[in-house]
């Protein structure tokens, strides 16, 4: 029995570790795509808000899908992904990253999807993977939209000391739009990848 218990414990912990690595790696990848492709293009048209918010923030898709699968257990992996991505993509800002506002921003961003899932659960719609509610892409986008609103309000408040009052609402809306568009693009990309795999497997 001990042997079975040990193997079970080992299997569970290795499963969690793998999930942790996948979520963190997906977050780093999506943030990399945002930093290298979205941000430079956005800086050309909206330079004044680019430093705070992105119009297409792909990591929000990772937040929502990871929280759908792992629930609150996704939060540490999302935080780890944010921290790793910060060190990888902004190596010169190591000390800046430790400022309270940025640290609060990372922590808050990681819990927003969880808050949205829990809010939806309050109205008896449990969308977590493995629960009664059938997984639905539309439901996922609704939860992503709620999470993006929660995130935009929180992030704008966190950075309120650094944002000009006249740009406050604009940045708040950009956060919300960026997160939602990021989630939709993330899901569309996965849809196309799965479709490509399926069609190639047939041929």
């Amino acid at each position: 029995m001990d042997c079975i218990g040990d193997r079970l414990r080992s299997s569970i912990s290795s499963g969690h570790l793998m999930g942790f690595i996948i979520v963190s790696a997906a977050y780093v990848l999506c943030l990399g795509l945002t930093v290298f492709f979205v941000t430079p293009a956005q800086r050309q048209v909206l330079p004044e808000i680019t430093v705070f918010a992105s119009l297409i923030y792909l990591p929000h898709g990772v937040r929502v899908l990871a929280t759908w699968v792992y629930g609150w257990k996704a939060i540490p992996a999302l935080i780890a992904g944010s921290v790793i991505a910060a060190f990888v993509f902004f190596p010169d800002a190591k000390l800046e990253f430790l400022t309270p506002a940025l640290f609060a921003s990372v922590l808050y961003g990681a819990v927003t999807a969880y808050i949205a899932f829990e809010l939806v659960r309050l109205i008896h719609r449990d969308y977590y993977f493995g629960n009664a509610q059938k997984p639905s892409w539309k439901g996922m986008i609704v939860i992503g939209a709620i999470a993006s609103i929660i995130n935009s309000i929180g992030q704008t408040l966190i950075f309120s000391g650094l944002i000009d009052l006249d740009k406050f609402v604009f940045i708040l809306v950009t956060y919300a739009i960026g997160d939602l568009v990021g989630l939709i693009l993330c899901m569309a990309a996965l849809m196309i990848i799965f479709r490509w795999i399926r069609l190639n497997a047939k041929s």
């Binding site: 499963g15 699968v69 493995g130 639905s136």
Partner: peptide, 24 residues
């Protein structure tokens, strides 16, 4: 919950998305 069943559920959900956006 296994990793495979999560992947399966994700694929089912995105297959439904494919149908709904007319890529069936």
């Amino acid at each position: 919950m296994t990793k495979l069943s999560a992947l399966f559920a994700l694929r089912c959900m995105l297959r439904e998305m494919e149908r709904d956006v007319g890529l069936q």
